[in-house]
């Protein structure tokens, strides 16, 4: 739980004086945060350490989503497609071809980026906007789920188990269950994703993408090739989310079509960014820090419920009810998210 106190503190201080171009300050904040978090798994008991890893997976997924839907303004309701492609590509290469998960991760990024570019091309070519765009992304994720569930090529509904190795190995991303290495790998990937998103937003491509988001016609009129930059954004976004999928498989050692492509996965990619703040660098991270532990807290409550709720013992679903309530409250009361609202307050002073 130290993450909660660590994350916002350096950032709010960094984001305050110059809201216009605080980019290098973001990078400094990321570096400080990364260094501070390195000893975390050595301090935390192992149960909390696994929560920390889950937080990082959420953050990674949502950083990807935020790039396309926040900075790019293209609301995706189907990021499960990219998460699942990352998970399935690496699992397939590992199980069927004995390829290292690192190679699988890279292959998954390429596959997810290509798939996103394909969907993006079709969606932009046929000018899908708003609800139609969201529904189209949703439909593609669901089609992948249905296809994976009924195809022998990827083991149907059974999915893949990662074969266990006798020894620990960085090359195969496999350690004893409570090893801090998992956390460090996830931290490294998340930091890389954060750096990429900072660099993306301050780059020409990122600025063009934001311009196209805010006024597509104006952007096109000043000569920005809108289509190219939107596709680039989608591909990058998909690649980041696919890394979360590939890591998920190595951490939980198991994947099936619902875990990879289910609509709940898309929701998990959306929620952290919305809770933390859409189209901000730190929103997905803060949202993930809020969401990650909830699961554990509710599970504890349901394992030993208070007397009034005795009948709920051993049931599931409470965590998602809390997510849903949180989502509604945030959208109604803090539409800019936790970090977005705080930043706004600071810059107004």
């Amino acid at each position: 739980m130290t993450t909660t106190t660590d994350t916002p503190a350096p950032e709010t201080a960094a984001g305050r004086p110059l809201p216009r171009l605080p980019w290098n300050k973001h990078l400094v904040a990321i570096a400080v945060l990364a260094v501070l978090l390195v000893p975390l798994p050595l301090i935390l008991p192992s149960a909390q350490a696994s929560v920390a890893v889950r937080v990082l997976i959420f953050a990674l997924m949502s950083i990807g989503w935020n790039m396309m839907s926040g900075f790019g303004g293209m609301f995706s309701f189907g990021h499960a497609a990219y998460f699942g492609i990352g998970a399935y590509t690496s699992a397939w290469l590992l199980v069927e071809h004995r390829a290292s998960p690192w190679i699988g991760m890279l292959a998954g990024m390429v596959m997810a980026a290509a798939f996103a570019a394909l969907i993006g091309f079709l969606a932009l070519r046929y000018k899908l906007r708003g609800a139609y765009f969201a529904l189209a992304t949703f439909a593609f994720a669901e089609m992948l789920r249905l296809w994976a569930t009924n195809s022998d090529f990827v083991n149907r509904a059974v999915g893949y188990h990662v074969p266990l190795r006798p020894d620990s190995s960085w090359w195969w991303i496999q350690f004893e269950p409570a090893s801090p290495n998992y956390f460090w790998i996830a931290l490294g990937l998340t930091v890389a994703a954060l750096v990429i998103s900072v660099q993306f937003v301050r780059s020409r491509a990122g600025q063009f993408t934001k311009a196209a988001r805010d006024d597509e016609d104006a952007a096109a009129a000043v000569g920005i090739p809108v289509m190219r930059y939107k596709l680039l954004t989608m591909a990058l976004s998909a690649a980041i989310t696919s890394v979360a999928g590939a890591f998920y498989v190595q951490y939980f050692l198991f994947i099936d079509p619902d875990l990879a492509f289910g609509s709940s996965v898309s929701i998990q990619a959306i929620l952290p960014a919305v809770i933390g703040g859409v189209a901000t660098i730190w929103g997905p991270v803060i949202g993930a820090v809020v969401m990650g532990p909830l699961n554990d807290v509710t599970a504890t409550v349901l394992r030993n419920p208070p007397p009034a709720l005795e009948f709920l013992q051993g049931r599931s679903g409470l965590d998602v009810i809390v997510y849903g309530t949180l989502l509604i409250i945030i959208v109604l009361l803090l539409p800019k998210g936790i970090y977005g609202t705080i930043r706004q307050r600071w810059s107004r002073r």
């Binding site: 609301f75 969201a134 599931s316 849903g324």
Partner: peptide, 30 residues
């Protein structure tokens, strides 16, 4: 409270409602 807000806001709210209802059913009925 969300009328007139961007489409995504309303979509997210109805999504939240569906998560709550579906999982409340799961919680109470298994």
């Amino acid at each position: 409270g969300a009328m007139g807000k961007p489409l995504e806001n309303q979509l997210l709210i109805t999504l939240g409602i569906s998560l709550i209802i579906e999982n409340a059913l799961l919680l109470f009925f298994g």
